[in-house]
């Protein structure tokens, strides 16, 4: 009885809402995660060659980092609006915009990670007859992994939060529920969607931190020796 009335009373917390609209919430969450994953993966695919190019030609590093910082400064609502004429009202607007944002952190962190590879390691690999490709994939990248994963973590967490703004073109995952909830003054919907959003960000952060620890066991040993 009282459970029914929380909908009518427009309470912030409403079990009935979560139960009756669970499908809607699941769909929005799936869309949210899908947009985030697609954006960060697309960002990685572009950031990688960009970072390698910037490293090979020292003169390009400044312009590449500068351009990505400029993109980073553009507010998300403006970014999506500028991409809308290019892609029409579609999910591509949101994914492209978020991928462009993640570039900044990813390029910067990949470059920093590669720069931090000790010259001795490089020399040793060359001395053992490693070619440039093998040197990159078997020596430099594994050593740059902590910085790369750190970048992915930051990119993922901020992308989850930013995906909500995609609601302006109707592809904002949980953000769409938040914006609809504002129009219909539906408090439970807004709060529930917001909380799921924060939980998603925290879960992504913890999962990626776990991945970082698993993939780079040497970093922990070094930290312990250092302290």
């Amino acid at each position: 009885m009282s459970a029914e009335s929380c909908l009518a009373a427009n309470d912030w917390i409403c079990g009935t809402y979560v139960r009756t609209r669970s499908q809607e919430l699941v769909d929005a969450t799936v869309e949210h995660v899908g947009i985030t994953v697609a954006s960060v993966v697309l960002g990685l695919l572009v950031a990688f060659p960009l970072a390698l190019l910037a490293r090979r030609r020292g003169g390009l590093a400044g312009p590449v980092l500068g351009l990505t910082s400029v993109l980073y400064t553009v507010p998300s609502l403006a970014m999506f609006s500028l991409l809308m004429p290019v892609f029409g009202v579609s999910v591509a607007v949101v994914v492209t915009g978020l991928a462009l944002y993640s570039l900044t952190v990813l390029v910067r962190n990949i470059l920093a990670g590669l720069d931090a590879v000790p010259d001795e390691a490089r020399e040793a690999a060359r001395g053992m007859g490693y070619g440039p490709g093998r040197l990159l994939f078997e020596v430099e990248l594994p050593l740059a992994l902590p910085a790369l994963l750190g970048g992915i973590r930051i990119a993922a967490v901020s992308t989850i939060a930013l995906t909500t703004v995609g609601a302006i073109v109707g592809y904002g995952g949980l953000g769409t529920l938040i914006l609809e909830g504002l129009d219909s003054y539906f408090k439970a919907q807004v709060l529930t969607a917001s909380v799921i959003c924060v939980v998603l960000a925290v879960v992504a952060d913890v999962l990626l931190l776990g991945a970082q620890r698993l993939l780079t066991p040497w970093a922990r040993v070094r930290a312990r020796e250092g302290s």
């Binding site: 930013l162 909500t164 003054y185 917001s194 924060v198 960000a201 952060d205």
Partner: peptide
């Protein structure tokens, strides 16, 4: 600052408005 990154601005704006 980590928390600030995880909280969606849009959500905070809409929650405050309601």
């Amino acid at each position: 600052s980590n928390g600030g990154r995880a909280v969606p601005t849009l959500a905070v704006l809409v929650l405050l408005t309601l």
